[in-house]
């Protein structure tokens, strides 16, 4: 589904990703862990197509196509979703309106008619309820004055509604309380199937207890230094990055 090969990325002349390769197949959940500043968010931005990143070398293939040829919205409509580490505040745009616009964009892309109002209301009501997002929240401007945890839930709500094939969660667990962590994980697990894949970026093993990854990768200084199964996350929790990187 997603094939990253020998990726080199720089920002404003500074190399951040230095030869990273990673393959994710349909139905797999991969966890990506690594110290602050190692390039995790940078990778997720590059995958989603944010401007300002220079791809110096390497390829990214998505469903057999060259991902780098696609615009940001084309990637989104092709099923790639990024839950941001720092979700954007958008004053003046009501959350529910934004959700509707996003759904309709996808439907348009799929050649479907716009969602009808009732269906939409039902859809978000149930999804929001599952995530413990109150309806008054949906009337507020998108992410504006949301608490840190509320923003993260909002990202998951968008994911549940857009049902991506490939979801990248960038530290969605940071800032969540214990209950929210469980709820968010349930949201992810509900979407999980043979058909879709996840790249879960996190610092904590706790999230991975809920969302059992098939693979765990450790990134340091812009490249993957170690890969393994779930036990690698446990080992990491015990030893810390320093030791693990040494053994790598």
């Amino acid at each position: 589904m997603l094939k990253i090969n020998n990726l080199h990325v720089s920002i404003e002349g500074k190399q951040i990703i230095k030869g990273l390769s990673l393959s994710i197949n349909k139905g797999e959940v991969h966890a990506l862990m690594g110290p602050n500043g190692s390039g995790k968010s940078t990778l997720s931005y590059v995958l989603s197509g944010k401007e300002g990143y220079e791809i110096e070398e390497g390829t990214i293939e998505y469903n057999g196509k060259n991902l780098l040829d696609l615009e940001v919205d084309e990637r989104a409509n092709a099923g790639l979703f990024l839950a941001f580490q720092y979700p954007m505040e958008i004053p003046g745009v009501q959350t529910s309106f934004f959700l509707k616009t996003a759904i309709n964009s996808k439907r348009k892309f799929l050649g479907m008619p716009e969602i009808d109002a009732l269906e939409f209301a039902k859809l978000i009501k149930s999804q929001a309820e599952d995530l413990g997002i109150g309806s008054e929240m949906l009337k507020r401007d998108l992410n504006v004055n949301y608490s840190g945890g509320e923003k993260k839930k909002q990202e998951i709500l968008q994911m549940s509604i857009l049902k991506p094939d490939m979801a990248i969660l960038d530290e969605t667990d940071s800032g969540l309380d214990i209950d929210a962590l469980r709820i968010v994980s349930e949201g992810v697990n509900k979407l999980r199937s043979e058909q879709n894949s996840f790249l879960v970026i996190t610092h904590y093993q706790r999230l991975l207890n809920y969302i059992k990854p098939d693979f765990v990768h450790i990134i340091a200084d812009g490249r993957i230094v170690k890969s393994g199964d779930f036990s690698l996350a446990l080992e990491l929790e015990e030893k810390g990055y320093e030791d693990i990187s040494k053994t790598a």
Partner: peptide, 18 residues
């Protein structure tokens, strides 16, 4: 903000309007 919209599949023209 335009980027955030596009990352949710909304095209640029519409994002700018909104």
């Amino acid at each position: 903000q335009v980027y955030y919209f596009k990352s949710r599949g909304i095209d640029e023209e519409q994002a700018i309007k909104i």
